[in-house]
Nucleic acid binder design. Structure first.
Lengths: 338, 338
DNA sequence: TTGAAAGCGGTACCAG
DNA sequence: CTGGTACCGCTTTCAA
């Protein structure tokens, strides 16, 4: 159907090999022949068949990305940064969503592996490392994004989650909060790290910890708003009531703020709130939301560069862990009189 | 490197053909042989090489999506709906971003074509239809998303843009607005349609049109906020001042609202604002934002189904245009005393 | 029910 | 400089 090298070779009275060499810029081709071939290629708008090339070279020039949720701005930005870096090196990106479902994720890994991608990047929702072993068996380089696994020496790019928790909590402390609650995320390394940072900060600054002050958001990637909303209603029923809340992410924080306002209390007057993610619209919310910036785009970019280097490397290098440093973006929701 | 059919065949003393047939569930295989093969496949965790299969069948079981901006929630949701539909049929999705740049978009189309994808979906930022001619030459089915081209009889899935403009404007009219401005988007069919709907509604309801009341947002996909913010400052300088603004999208509307509030005016008290896109956080904004819902996810799903049917069809069917109907989601930003 | 041969569209290697 | 030959991993066709 489409034009092939064979067509061009025949028309020009050359061999396929010669055409192939012109395409790949081999030096051992006569100047005139090269021009003739190039000319015909333009005219016919010939495009080499990547599937065929991949079959013999073993390289597909494409990479895979699996995320729990494409609509989540964090992952969208990671994907965007990644796509940007890969495009420049002529790589294509296959993206698939696991919908936060470990089984689906395993399926997607299988699917992508059977496409013989040059590399895989996964923001995993798994509990076990079994899937990753399988990837290793196939000798496909892979990079874990955002969520790390203890005891799995794999390439990783993400933000320093303990620092996230610490920064957020210290920010609340320095805003004068004394009773700081935390609505944590699901049992992934991100949530664990942020919780740990929260605890460290409280301990380090001698801030009391109250019973019931750490709640689990029902779900983190989907429907976070109602998760935060519900959790905050529980927190409001506690005695003493918190005067600061550190939320696992911004959508949760929005739900939290809405719950506080519905209860007739003020943000930050009665309760200060900080989220995580620094979403674009944070500054335009009912109460502009203080947040921890996770460098989403940078994560994608670094992951892209790492993956490219892994593909180039002939032998698998020592797994590398890239931790980006988060930063606080203070806004109205934590602006309290000192 | 990876396990191949040949390996399995050799180990089992069978031919590659037999193994291949088992994998594709051919009926003409002995029950016992089938079991043996299946067993070994599981044990070795064999995955067929899709590139090789594609080379002979001509079908890659993958589709491409090109959008101007992955981070834009509209496109993220389209991608998500699409990905969902395609996954169920064992298709993979290659996503690439054109960054709103027509040249980059053309490049991406070339790149994806050379991967021999089974279908392409494009939310285009082009001015000309040249690229699409090229796709047609290669006989790859394609679907235009969101943005249509006059005089290009291509498959299309999007929302009825004239209805979007009409609904939004009529909503402002019924909220009591008399001087309605419009901040339009870039020169794509979406913006043209919404503007047309806006004009139709004003004319139909005998609402006056003022000079300078239609402004172009500087850019629509990137940095919309500041675009809306700037445009609104210009509108505020006009006499008479608008009492209602219909914005091309929600981020613009957020910038608009911020500009109004900064000027010491109230929303909706002095000026009502409606956006377009119905983003998740609209209800949690400083002023909860009324918006037109574009059915982003449904667009992705319908496009996915359409594309699957195009792939199945042996002969290219008559191009089909699927127009989804938008709906108003009223919130605080247009709640005015009648 | 099974398999030998041919070929999909390229690339690698080596001879001329 | 140019090209014949083999082969990448799989499917298709057809004969045994």
């Amino acid at each position: 159907m489409a034009v092939t090298m064979k067509d061009i070779a025949r028309e020009l009275g050359l061999s396929v090999v010669t055409v192939s060499k012109v395409i790949r810029n081999h030096t051992d081709i006569g100047a005139e022949t090269r021009q003739r071939v190039l000319k015909r290629i333009k005219e016919l708008n010939y495009q080499p068949n990547m599937a065929a090339r991949a079959l013999v070279t073993g390289r597909t020039y494409s990479a895979g990305l699996i995320v729990p949720d494409l609509v989540h701005p964090f992952f969208a930005e990671v994907a965007s940064g990644l796509s940007d870096v890969l495009r420049r090196k002529n790589y294509s990106l296959l993206i698939s969503s696991s919908e936060g479902d470990p089984d689906l994720e395993r399926q997607e890994i299988k699917r992508l592996l059977s496409r013989r991608l040059d590399a895989l990047m996964i923001a995993s929702t798994q509990w076990t490392v079994e899937s990753f072993r399988r990837i290793e068996e196939q000798k496909v380089p892979y990079v874990l994004l955002d969520r790390a696994f203890l005891g799995l020496p794999a390439n990783f790019v993400g933000v320093d989650e303990i620092a996230v928790g610490r920064l957020a909590t210290e920010h609340l402390i320095s805003a004068g909060c004394q009773r700081i609650a935390h609505i944590r995320g699901p049992a992934a390394s991100t949530a664990v790290g942020r919780l740990e940072g929260y605890r460290q900060a409280l301990a380090h600054h001698d801030v009391s910890q109250f019973r019931g002050y750490v709640l689990a958001g029902r779900s983190a990637d989907v429907d976070s708003w109602s998760s935060g909303h519900e959790a905050m209603k529980k927190l409001l029923a506690l005695t003493p009531r918190p005067d600061g809340v550190f939320c696992y992410n911004d959508p949760i924080a929005i739900g939290v703020i809405d719950a506080i306002l519905e209860a007739g209390l003020r943000v930050p007057g009665d309760i200060a709130v900080i989220g995580c993610g620094n979403l674009h619209f944070d500054k335009s919310l009912r109460v502009p939301l203080s947040s921890v910036d996770q460098q989403s785009r940078a994560i994608g970019e670094r992951a892209g560069k790492l993956v490219l280097s892994l593909i180039e490397a002939k032998v698998a290098p020592q797994p590398k862990s890239i931790m980006l440093q988060p930063s606080i973006v203070p806004r109205e929701s934590t602006r309290r009189p000192q």
